[in-house]
């Protein structure tokens, strides 16, 4: 298989000047054994007299795994249109919420609604909601007004809240949703991720962020603890861009006032309006996510709307776990 001359295969053979230069440049990154001591090894490897306790432990784990394997599908299964149990602090409401039914809490009245078997809704006073659909893997309510606190442990998309033309889709998490009579409201995510979808525009909202929305538009995910001036600048910039013009003052202020904790807001802003990449927000985001030194080609690609360029930086952010069951804390905490 060997060829007479192949310096790439055999470093002992002299290569061309470019290969030699690449070797010289990259050799600096070589693993240096003396600077990296061997990781400590806990040598408690299995020995014969450990085998029996290990076998018992393995049996226990297998039994637990079997129980989970039975329980989990049962938990996710739900007969189509079966009503959801409702618990209320005053017995004025029906004990179940069927498809098509509306639940209305009065002043000072709370309710707890089971979301099939995948989670629960805490319903605050003065809230009005309806059950639209329920079946295995797909549960939807409509929130007309008021506030709900949702806690869900299920695959992404299993639970959602319809809001006029918009939809709030759970991706495995804990979130709060407020809705006013005029159609405006707020989505605040406590754990995991939620997708706000409106008119084909999807906005991911991660834990620790909130999104304000109106009857026909969604804002950008912002940290509630973000500086007020930064939030105002981002909101003003978003508003101006929706109106069709670029507010350079708001853009500059957004870049200047952003902290490294606001990286997700900047990323969402630049994703929604890629042309902003030619302004001050791009280098600010690059700095916040450690993507330095800025790459002019990547920046130009982003500004022209390249999905590949945008995804390259999304890949640097923590993403919703593919294994939704890893969010088990949402069930118990």
């Amino acid at each position: 298989m060997s060829t007479p001359r192949d310096p790439l295969w055999s470093p002992d053979q002299p290569g061309d000047a470019d290969l030699a230069r690449l070797e010289q440049l990259l050799g600096r990154y070589r693993h240096v054994p003396s600077e990296a001591p061997m990781p400590k090894v806990s040598t408690a490897l299995p020995r014969r007299h450990w085998r029996r306790p290990l076998a018992f432990a393995a049996g226990g784990v297998a039994a637990a795994a079997l129980a989970v394997a039975i329980w989990l599908p049962w938990r996710l299964r739900w007969t189509a249109d079966a009503p959801w149990p409702v618990t209320v602090d005053v017995p004025a409401l029906a004990p179940a919420l069927a498809v098509g039914d509306t639940l209305q809490t009065g002043a000072g009245q709370h309710a707890r609604v089971a979301i099939a078997r995948i989670g629960a809704l805490e319903v605050s006073p003065q809230t009005r909601l309806s059950l639209i659909e329920t079946r295995s893997g797909h549960h939807r309510i409509a929130l007309e007004t008021g506030h709900v606190h949702a806690r869900v442990w299920a695959p992404p998309g299993a639970f959602g809240v319809l809001d006029g033309g918009a939809e709030v889709i759970d991706l495995g998490c804990v979130f709060d949703l407020w809705k006013r009579a005029d159609g405006s409201g707020r989505l605040a995510v406590g754990s995991g991720w939620v997708m706000h979808s409106e008119g084909g525009r999807e906005t991911l909202v991660p834990a620790g962020h909130a999104l304000d929305f109106g009857p026909d538009h969604a804002g950008l995910p912002l940290r509630p603890a973000a500086p007020a001036a930064f939030a105002e600048a981002v909101t003003a910039l978003d508003h101006a861009l929706r109106e069709g013009h670029r507010d350079h003052d708001a853009e500059t202020r957004s870049a200047e006032l952003a902290t490294s904790d606001d990286a997700f807001t900047l990323l969402s802003l630049l994703t929604r309006y890629p042309t902003l990449a030619d302004g001050p927000l791009y280098p600010r985001l690059a700095d916040a996510i450690g993507a330095t030194p800025p790459d002019a080609r990547h920046r130009a690609a982003w500004a022209s709307g390249s999905i590949h360029a945008i995804n390259a930086w999304w890949d640097r952010m923590p993403r919703p776990p593919k294994q939704w069951w890893r969010n088990w804390r949402d069930v118990v905490l």
Partner: peptide, 29 residues
């Protein structure tokens, strides 16, 4: 060097890892 490393990092995994073993770690085929 950083620029070259950046280019290698966007190559497909099989090429990336093999090239790094050759050019960075100095290993033969």
């Amino acid at each position: 060097a950083e620029r070259v490393l950046h280019v290698i990092r966007v190559l497909p995994q099989a090429y990336r890892e093999t090239l790094l073993l050759r050019l960075v770690e100095g290993l033969s085929g």
